[in-house]
């Protein structure tokens, strides 16, 4: 459906915006390396089923997400390392890993390796933006491209919410993926404050600056 496709393309667009920002400005300043590593972990643990992916659409996106994230991490850790300031990237990710690990072990759909890792990846993704938002809060402002990146990334999961509602009514099984929906709503709520400033500042041509 349209929400799902717009969501996935918003996700893909966010990655292109980030790569464009790093290469155009020859800098990864303002980007949290910790959040990027968490996303890598999200993709690896979620796409363990990559070889068995039957849909070409999903297969292509999975390959794109894994490979582009690897490239982003390479750019941040090697090519543009001097522009990456670890002193600003101080969020304690062990809390996020603990949170996702605990929920994945307590409430997976099934106790299989694939299902536990899948649930872990869903919960981890819901909070993986926190080091990035924390860094933004410390610097108090962001380059326009960094703000566009975060907005596109946040829009992706927000668009999955109408997708789930649409699917609930349009598919005969009326299934609700409780883990994905709960985590997806949490993820979108974490962005809400950012979305508000993005809407009131960046979309009106102003700089992204915290009040």
């Amino acid at each position: 459906n349209i929400f799902r496709v717009l969501g996935d393309f918003s996700h893909l667009a966010s990655i292109f915006i980030l790569l464009h920002k790093i290469q155009q400005l020859k800098s990864c300043s303002g980007i949290s390396f910790k959040s990027q590593v968490l996303y890598m972990l999200v993709y690896i643990t979620r796409y363990l089923d990559l070889p068995w992916t039957s849909s070409p659409y999903n297969f292509i996106f999975k390959v794109l997400f894994i490979s582009s994230e690897l490239y982003i991490i390479y750019l941040m850790a090697r090519a543009y390392k001097p522009t990456n300031d670890p002193n600003l990237d101080t969020f304690h990710v062990e809390f996020l890993l603990g949170f996702a690990g605990l929920l994945a072990l307590l409430f997976p759909y099934k106790y299989t390796i694939l299902e536990v890792f899948w649930a872990f990846s869903i919960w981890l993704e819901s909070v993986a933006i926190l080091p990035q938002l924390f860094m933004l809060q410390r610097t108090g402002e962001a380059e326009a491209m960094t703000a566009h990146y975060i907005a596109a990334l946040g829009m992706y999961r927000a668009l999955y919410i109408p997708n789930w509602i649409y699917r609930y009514f349009s598919e005969p099984t009326h299934k609700v993926d409780t883990i994905a929906v709960t985590a997806g709503i949490l993820q979108t709520i974490l962005y809400s404050d950012f979305f508000w400033i993005y809407y009131t500042k960046v979309m009106r041509g102003e700089k992204f600056k915290l009040p």
Binding site: R4, D49, W52, T53, N58, F61, K62, K110, E115
Partner: peptide, 10 residues
């Protein structure tokens, strides 16, 4: 995918 839930989303 070996999962009866069938994770058909990304």
């Amino acid at each position: 995918t070996g999962s009866e839930h069938g994770h058909d989303e990304l």
